[in-house]
Simulated scan of single mutants.
Amino acid sequence: MSKKKGDKKAKPGKKKDHAGLSVVDLAPTITHAARSMRTALTRSLGESGLYAGQDGVILALAEEEGMTPGQLALRLGVKAPTMTRTIGRMEAQGFLERRADETDGRLTKVFLTHNGLKTVEQIGRSVSECGEQAARGLSDKEVRTLLKLLKLVEQNLQPAQEEDQDSLDD
């Protein structure tokens, strides 16, 4: 008698059977995984003096120097007042500086300081180490599949992209 796919029973002492999982488990599972990743990354970045979320600001400015606080907030998916407080804190820590725009004095742009630039490499190492820790026990193919699926989940949760997709389907 051969077993069909999905007819597997949990064996005592073996990995937990996940057959009972459903879409209602998706949000809490992703939230817990993201929180665990953020905690591990924060621990890894601790010696640099960076706090949770500040690494994203530095990496965004490393890609594109001289963004306004509003542009940074939009790119990182946070509200403008949150970004303004984060920038103020990071400026006090010596990672960033604000300067008036050269062509429009009404605009303030944010730039990395020398100390901010020095943390880019450390952030990269920490992100890599945390990624390796999170992927422990997964094959390369499973990691690629997980990334593809998480990106799809993220796209599905973006209202503007959802509306754009709906208009493409018409």
Rank of each mutant, 00 (worst) to 15 (best):
L96I: 11
I58S: 01
I58C: 05
A80L: 14
A52Q: 07
F111N: 12
L117Q: 07
G70Q: 11
K109Y: 05
D55E: 15
L76R: 03
G56R: 07
I87R: 02
R106C: 13
M90T: 11
E65Y: 06
V78K: 06
G77W: 01
R85S: 14
T82P: 01
I58E: 00
E63R: 13
A80M: 08
V78D: 04
Q122H: 07
T103I: 07
E121L: 10
Q93D: 11
G94H: 01
D55L: 04
F95C: 08
A100Q: 06
V120W: 00
I123T: 04
R89E: 13
V78Q: 06
F111A: 14
T82Q: 12
G56Q: 08
E91C: 11
T103C: 02
G46F: 07
G56S: 11
A62W: 01
D55N: 14
Q54I: 08
M83H: 06
Q54H: 15
S44A: 15
A92L: 04
L76W: 00
R98P: 05
L112H: 04
A100S: 15
Q54L: 06
R106T: 15
A100L: 09
G116R: 03
G88N: 12
Q54D: 12
N115A: 15
T119K: 02
D104F: 02
V78C: 15
E102Y: 04
Y51T: 04
T68I: 09
E91F: 09
D101C: 15
R106Q: 13
K79P: 00
E47T: 15
T82V: 14
R75I: 06
N115K: 06
E63G: 11
L45D: 01
L45Y: 03
D55H: 05
H114R: 11
K118R: 15
G105W: 02
Q122S: 11
G88W: 03
I87T: 10
L107D: 03
R98K: 14
E102D: 12
R75P: 08
E64L: 12
G77E: 02
T103V: 04
A80R: 07
M67Y: 00
Q54K: 05
L76I: 13
A52N: 06
E65F: 07
R43F: 10
T68G: 10
N115G: 12
L74F: 11
G46L: 08
Q93K: 14
L107P: 00
G49R: 07
D55K: 00
G70V: 11
A52P: 02
G77Y: 01
Q71A: 15
L107H: 03
V78R: 01
A52G: 08
I58V: 15
E64M: 09
E121R: 07
L107A: 11
L96H: 06
P81I: 09
T108P: 01
G105H: 11
A73E: 01
L112S: 03
A60P: 04
R75E: 14
E97H: 13
D104P: 00
V57A: 13
G46N: 07
L112I: 12
I87E: 01
I87G: 06
S48D: 10
M67N: 09
G66D: 09
A60D: 03
T119M: 04
K79V: 15
T84A: 10
N115D: 14
A62V: 05
T68C: 05
G116W: 01
L45C: 05
E102C: 05
